Computed example of a mutant assay.
Amino acid sequence: MEWAASDDTLSQADRLRVAQFVDQIAGIQLPESKKVLIETRLRKRQKALGYGSLKEYVDDVLTHRSSEFELTHFLDALTTNKTGFYREAEHFEFLVSYIVKHRMTQASPYRVWSAGCSSGEEPYTLAIELSELAGKLPHFTSEITATDISVSCLAVAKKAIYSHDKIEMMPMEKRRRHLLRAKNKTDPRIMIAPETASHVAFSEFNLKTGDYTAFKQQFSAIFCRNVMIYFSNTDRQTLTDRFAASLKEGGLLFIGHSESLMDQHNRFERLVPTIYRKRG
């Protein structure tokens, strides 16, 4: 007997339920144009758990609240974004040049927050660049705080192991100093050297609902790139204000090239496109 493929799609009402939940919890917008993305990502969890349909899975998670554990996976599936080492590399070049120009020596570590760090490529790129800088500037030290809402992405980041294609944009001389190859020659993966990785501290944090006062000290720079594009204008403005409060006077804010900054309160001055400095 031949079986026809099942047309297992979400109704408009169920798509709205999913979108409203993700907006409420994480501030991320999932409009009608994201319907296929929602279905594709949730279908993986539906099949893994043995639900007969997407609707059954969505009902169990959002209506019956089957488990807090599965709510985490549900949200995780819809908030994971693409990243890579040295993505928008000019940001890292600017940061290094700015530190050299304005902070030749300092008494405390240069603190950077990678807000929305995904699977760790951005904060490890920062660790590589700031480790290189420490070899050139006397008394320069750095600390990198990396946060994300996705527990699965953070698990990958903490392992610090990546496929070789992830490092295509990384200069060869920096690969030699900051990466380790597997002892098994048939394993193409690489690992961030422990000394470099030690500069990064990972933790789970929700940019919409998180407690920003939990950060005991202000940051010298914040990277929040290709994250706010998914937020509503209201949430983007709130996030801008919270970043301003989390930055030292004169601190830098880096956003993605596809984003614009909501800054109604004039907390920042633009240095170059996508790079801002907190006003004094």
Rank of each mutant, 00 (worst) to 15 (best):
M1H: 13
W3T: 15
A5H: 09
S11C: 02
S11F: 06
S11L: 12
Q12S: 12
D14Y: 11
R15Q: 12
L16S: 11
G27P: 00
L30H: 01
I38Y: 07
R41E: 00
L42A: 05
K47C: 06
K47W: 11
A48K: 10
L54A: 01
L62C: 05
T63S: 13
T63W: 12
T63G: 09
H64M: 10
R65M: 01
T72E: 15
L75T: 15
D76M: 08
D76I: 07
L78R: 13
T79K: 10
N81W: 02
K82S: 11
A89P: 02
H91L: 06
H91T: 04
H91Q: 05
Y98F: 13
Y98Q: 11
V100D: 15
V100H: 13
Y110H: 01
Y110N: 00
A115N: 08
C117P: 04
G120H: 09
T125H: 13
T125F: 03
E129I: 11
E129Y: 08
L130T: 03
A134E: 11
G135A: 05
S142Q: 02
T145P: 06
A146W: 10
T147Y: 00
V156G: 04
S163L: 09
S163W: 02
K166P: 04
I167W: 03
I167G: 05
E168A: 14
M170L: 15
E173R: 11
E173F: 07
K174L: 14
R175W: 06
R177F: 09
H178F: 06
T186Y: 08
T186K: 14
D187W: 09
P194S: 04
E195R: 09
A197Y: 10
H199Q: 11
S203G: 07
S203Q: 13
S203C: 10
F205T: 12
F205W: 13
N206E: 00
Y212Q: 07
T213K: 12
F215M: 09
Q218I: 04
F219R: 03
A221M: 00
I222P: 01
C224Y: 05
R225G: 07
V227K: 01
S232H: 03
D235C: 12
R236S: 12
Q237M: 09
Q237S: 03
Q237I: 02
L239A: 00
L239G: 08
D241L: 07
R242N: 10
A245S: 15
L247R: 03
K248M: 12
E249M: 07
G251W: 00
I255L: 03
G256N: 09
Q264E: 11
N266D: 13
R267E: 14
R267H: 15
R270Y: 00
R270E: 14
L271I: 09
P273F: 04
P273Y: 01
I275D: 02
I275C: 05
K278Y: 02
G280Y: 10
G280I: 10
